[in-house]
Structures are given as structure tokens and as C-alpha cells.
Write a protein that binds this DNA or RNA. Structure first.
Lengths: 100, 100
DNA sequence: TTGGTATATCGGGAAAAGTCGATATACATT
DNA sequence: AATGTATATCGACTTTTCCCGATATACCAA
């Protein structure tokens, strides 16, 4: 993954916000009936509602974050759940500490 | 400083490159007559030449990096020297480790 | 199989970023 | 004061990003 793309993914208020929400889902989202936060994360609809932006925008934003390896997704039935990707974030912090 | 602005500053190949050059100036720039790398950094002209982009673009890029607290500048005579800002970078790595 | 819900993708208009050449400013030298 | 050099700022044009509504796709339920 290109480093620039990682930083681009983070260069947006909403996408940054989403990442902070996903760090502590239980703090930012209501309980989910079908799946738990730790296993699969939070579904697109929840994130979209909280963000106030359109469904298409949030879907796009989530895929940008995923391409940057900052989050990962699981499909369960008709829902797609996204959660933080610990490894990707660690890798990023490493880049900053060793290359910049 | 807004977090988004920090990531925007890093969302560009050339600016990222500049930051890596400034991490180890002696590796990437010829010796300077008037000033030493550790004290003041590298002057705009050196960075511009190495980048291959126009003078105005590099001047702009350096000020973007500076506004994001990623580098700092010193004026000496007609030259402006830029160097890495350790604190800003540490702060950034901290954001990633604690907030995202 | 029909209809409903969740998400993804597409096409587009507005705003921001990338990048340049020209010009302005600041400083140094004669 | 006049000229030369280094950097900053301005105006313009092109490319990219933001963000939407409309549509497509995937899955589920009746």
C-alpha cells in the first residue's frame, strides 16, 4: 500500500471521525442485535446515520479506509460490518517513527 | 493544529519525500557552506533542486509542512533553512496511537 | 418470484489541491 | 542607489477530492 494513499485516507474530517468511533464502538453506537462490536465491528448504516452524510458517501469513505488497511470488513447477511485494523494502524505509526 | 491538516500535509508524494530527506540531510544533500544541517536544516534551494519541481511549488509545500508543525524554519541572510520538527512528529505518532 | 432492506457503484457539479510562470519582497554586495 | 540572488506570494489552469442522487447488486422474507 502506498504511503500517500494512507495519509489521503486520513485527510478528511469524517473519515478520521469514523476511525475514532470504531476505536470505541460501545461508546459511540447503540447495541447491535445481530453481531457484537469486537467480532465484526459496526455496520454501514449505523456509521452513516451517525455521520449525517449520505449513504453513498459513507460507503465510499469506508472503502477508502479499507484500501488503506485502516479498517476491515465482514459481510453478515445483508449487512457489512467494519472494524478497526490494528495492524494497519500499527504499521502507520511505525512509518512515522522510522521514516519521517 | 487541526489533525486533518497534518494528514493533508502528508498526502503528497513530494512533501513526504522532503520529510524523509530532512530526516537524514547529510545523506541527501551536499555539504552546505554557511550553515550546518543539525542547527538550521537545509535551504529551500537545495530542496527545490532535488525535488525537480518549481521554486514556487516547493516554497508553498514547505509552508504547508510548517503549518502542520512537521518542520520548522530559520532565516539566515537571504536563505531560509528548514528542518524536521521532532516534537510535531512525535505528537502525530501519539495521535495515531491513542486516538485512532 | 416479488418485494423489501442494506450496501456498492456510477455520473456529475462544486470545491480544493497541484503546479506553474510571473511578480513581489528581503537581504547582500558593490 | 543599483544590481543580483533567495524566497514568498499571486493568478491561472488542470487534476483530484468531496459529496450528492440515482441506480445496481446482494441478500432476505413472504
Amino acid at each position: 500500500m502506498d504511503q500517500v494513499e494512507i495519509f489521503k485516507a486520513l485527510s478528511n474530517k469524517t473519515r478520521l471521525q469514523i476511525l475514532t468511533w470504531l476505536k470505541e464502538p460501545e461508546l459511540h453506537f447503540p447495541e447491535q442485535p445481530n453481531a457484537d462490536f469486537d467480532n465484526v465491528g459496526v455496520c454501514v448504516g449505523q456509521i452513516q446515520m451517525k455521520s449525517g452524510l449520505s449513504q453513498s458517501t459513507i460507503s465510499e469513505y469506508l472503502s477508502i479506509l479499507q484500501r488503506a488497511d485502516l479498517i476491515s470488513s465482514t459481510r453478515l447477511g445483508q449487512w457489512t460490518y467494519y472494524k478497526r485494523n490494528k495492524e494497519g494502524l500499527k504499521k502507520l505509526s511505525n512509518i512515522i517513527n522510522t521514516e519521517l
